[in-house]
Design a protein around this nucleic acid. Structure first.
Length: 189
DNA sequence: CAGTGGATGCTCT
DNA sequence: GAGCATCCACTGT
């Protein structure tokens, strides 16, 4: 299945299916190991109260990025998913770094690979993603996406850092991954 | 290791 | 003016 076919599916199906894909930005990145789904009629979603200038990309075509500025400091990146036009998206929370480690260490001013992409703010910093990428299409340069090599085992847990609808198990993690961010009910090392 | 609090600025009410 | 899909440094065991 192509990326575009995948993300056109309803977000609760698309989100776990994104695990195991390898995301590169200008050749730098890694394998997606942790995501969160933000669904239609989801009080925790930025789209919950309708379209605004900030969340406009969420209501556009699936397969694009929705990037927003968080806590005045960090960028967070989402993949817009289906059904089209309803404001559904998947927050990218962690990657296993595989390509361009040196570049990512330089951007993060960090040598510990474990923490390069373990968290939504860290991930965007390592990949060089900013508001300039809001609305960008993931099937065009500088992006490259490669499907998983094999079967991916997945754990579903509550989402991190939200106050509304915090019990819904819409955070998906590759089982046993040491590259996921810390968070509720993280799989034991 | 766990828990706490500050940084920092945009978005929407 | 309040709230925020975070990160890091620092504290105390």
């Amino acid at each position: 299945m192509s990326l575009l076919e995948l993300v056109e599916r309803p977000v609760l199906e698309a989100a776990p299916a994104l695990l195991g894909w390898t995301l590169l930005v200008d050749g730098v990145g890694g394998t997606i190991v942790e995501v969160e789904a933000y669904a239609p009629d989801d009080p925790a979603s930025h789209s919950y109260r309708g379209e605004t200038p900030r969340n406009r990309a969420m209501f556009g075509p699936p397969g694009r990025l929705y990037v927003y500025h968080s806590y005045g400091i960090h960028w967070c990146a989402n993949v817009v998913c289906g059904p089209a036009g309803v404001g559904a998206a998947v927050l990218l929370r962690a990657l296993e770094p595989t390509h361009g480690l040196e570049k990512m260490c330089e951007r993060r001013r960090l040598s510990d690979a474990r923490l390069l992409c373990a968290g939504p703010g860290r991930l965007t910093q390592a990949l060089g993603l900013t508001g300039d990428h809001d609305g960008a299409q993931l099937d065009l340069p500088p992006f490259r996406l490669y499907p998983p090599a094999g079967t991916v085992e997945i754990d579903a847990t509550p989402r991190v850092g939200i106050t509304k609808a915090s019990a819904l198990p819409w955070r998906y993690v590759v089982r046993g991954s040491r590259w996921a961010s810390r968070g509720p009910r993280r799989a034991s090392p």
